[in-house]
Design a protein around this nucleic acid. Structure first.
Lengths: 356, 356
DNA sequence: CTGTTAGCGCATTCAC
DNA sequence: GTGAATGCGCTAACAG
């Protein structure tokens, strides 16, 4: 490295002044160069970049934020990063944020209001310029704190109808419609549903979208086939058992998310119920693993990356909008059906045993 | 909320001065109160806290960082957050960091040096006080940038023998010893190994730990049973097939990580090789899913949370150590064996067919 | 086009 | 114990 020779051997701290001295310009010129202000003459700019390279200088983002009033940080709040749907979303958000010169501050709440509260404090202290709240069932009052301070927000599903709040419209309706239609075409008429925790707004929305599809295809709605879970694999296991305990049996089970569906797969296997021969199963999310379950899971796809990108764009539009319009918008997020091997034609007469 | 009434209705910006005015003290006193400096009188402190509460004030962490020279941010670099081993680690790190008043800056590199490079720039610009590099096979030269600036580092496995670098000692030796011993006790003598990409240091280390155990138990080492994978599920599938293509067959397969093992489970299923009756399989990591595979996976457990906590403590020890000792240490991370249902006694004579 | 200057919000000397 | 003053590293006015 030539750097070791060229760098001033005094171990003095490395700031914009050091660069200015070395390039023999003012600190303003260094600042302008770094920020690509076009009025800097190419000659000086080159000298500055050279000095920056030789010194291996990196501007202090805290100082920049402080004076510019812009932190260039977006917060991302997810319910739990250990839920396999979210890592992809987080990764997608990081990618697009960094690509656009923003930093990402992730935080997971585990659906615990207490954690949500400290989470919001962190966002506030770091002066984020916007927050994407992906926690499908959020505590509104806490969000008020953000909203009151005019911090751009982007939410999924329901909309806090306040300024500075954009919304991602996840098209569950379409998703479930595709799922139910797929089953109907396979001859299924008895479809059960394992929901998420109905305390969560998103879980209710999914459930309703399912019911709407049932109606659309004029299928029977039976309360006892609507079982409540909690979006975990275990819930799928329990849900299957609850269904198996009943007398009359559905030929297909639709689940509120993939983890639940995978639980159903597991429980069915142990009960010697063959999927898809005896029972069709559909999930929602399309997490990576769904491709590799036995059998591979047919599922309603919701792209974490797509959500992340829409969320980022929503935030950016608000953060960088000129005064006048606030950049608030609604962003439709599409769903699609991924047909794999957990669905098959319904048996004409549903008399298979459901041993426990 | 009484806040709306009590807050001065001017929409002026909310800073330490606002609080000082309202509490009728100097900004120095506010600062001291916030930082719990003991010399402030209880009376004033109470007034200050009251004002803070009423105004709903949060100190600007960028300003604090700038003046104090301490960002209270630790970086966390992981290879890919979509690898199911890491979300748990990230969550663990976030938990302990926040608990101790630090912020976490996560970033994933996808094992791409280019990304690693921007990743390091981000850490430098945000002036992190330390970086945990969990990317099992890291590019040393890039880390030099951190090391040169005396930024505390904590690495896994191999040690950059420079100052300011702590090391997590993952006890693969013990882990594989337990795994092999378990198989030996079940009567296995023909054990294959599917490694990670041998370009990665960690993959080599695991492979060597496996070989050492083989030697210890005086089991035959056969080159053709050491197949190279890449730590993905697909690698497990391919690895199984590579093994199946050979004439003589192992009775057990040990894998460099759980994803690989799960791939083996899948491939075996499709090849009508029964696990564990015909073939025993062991993984490494103990990701959540391993508990739910068919059959549930016996695996060598490596706790992401434990690693995260050790990494945090290493960083904290360095960041907060008094001048003199630099707080550098080595932290042993234990492994253990989780016996589930993918391992069983070896067939006395290994003649089962290995159809493709 | 470039340099000088004045803060950004806060912690931390110093006097009192 | 408390307050006034200084400056952290940088950007944005403003002059030139």
């Amino acid at each position: 490295m030539t750097r070791l020779r060229t760098r001033t051997n005094t171990c003095t701290k490395l700031d914009i002044r050091t660069v200015a001295e070395r390039a023999d310009v003012s600190i303003a010129t260094v600042s302008r160069t770094i920020n690509s202000i076009p009025t800097v003459s190419p000659l000086l700019a080159e000298r500055v970049w050279k000095a920056i390279r030789e010194l291996d200088y990196y501007p202090n983002s805290q100082a920049r934020s402080l004076v510019s009033g812009r932190s260039r940080i977006f917060g991302l709040i997810v319910p739990e990063i250990t839920n396999p749907f979210f890592p992809e979303l987080v990764q997608g958000f990081e990618d697009i944020a960094v690509e656009n010169g923003y930093e990402m501050l992730v935080s997971s709440t585990n659906n615990d209001p207490g954690r949500m509260s400290v989470c919001i404090r962190r966002m506030l202290e770091r002066r984020v310029e916007g927050v994407a709240v992906m926690t499908f069932g959020v505590e509104e009052p806490l969000l008020q704190q953000l909203s009151e301070r005019k911090i751009p927000l982007v939410l999924t599903e329901f909309l806090l109808d306040t300024p500075h709040v954009s919304t991602l419209l996840l098209d569950y309706k379409m998703g479930f419609r595709l799922g139910v239609e797929h089953l109907v075409k396979l001859g299924h008429r008895h479809i059960a549903f394992i929901s998420g925790p109905l305390a969560l707004h998103s879980a209710r929305t999914r459930r309703e979208a399912f019911l709407a599809s049932l109606k659309e295809f004029q299928l029977p709605i039976r309360e006892s086939w609507m079982v409540e879970g909690d979006h975990t694999l275990e819930a799928g296991v329990r849900g299957f058992q609850a269904l198996a305990d009943q007398g009359e049996i559905p030929t297909a089970i639709l689940c509120s998310n993939d983890m639940t569906a995978i639980g159903v797969l597991k429980a069915a296997y142990h009960a010697h119920v063959r999927v898809p021969d005896d029972l069709s199963v559909i999930g929602l999310d399309d997490i990576r693993f769904s491709e590799y379950t036995l059998p591979p899971l047919t599922t309603i796809r919701l792209s974490g990356v797509e959500i992340a990108q829409a969320a980022f764009h929503a935030l950016q539009a608000q953060a960088e909008s000129e005064k006048g319009k606030d950049g608030v918008r609604k962003y439709p997020i599409s769903t699609s059906l991924v047909v794999r091997e957990s669905t098959a034609p319904a048996r004409t007469i549903n008399i298979f045993p459901f041993p426990r």
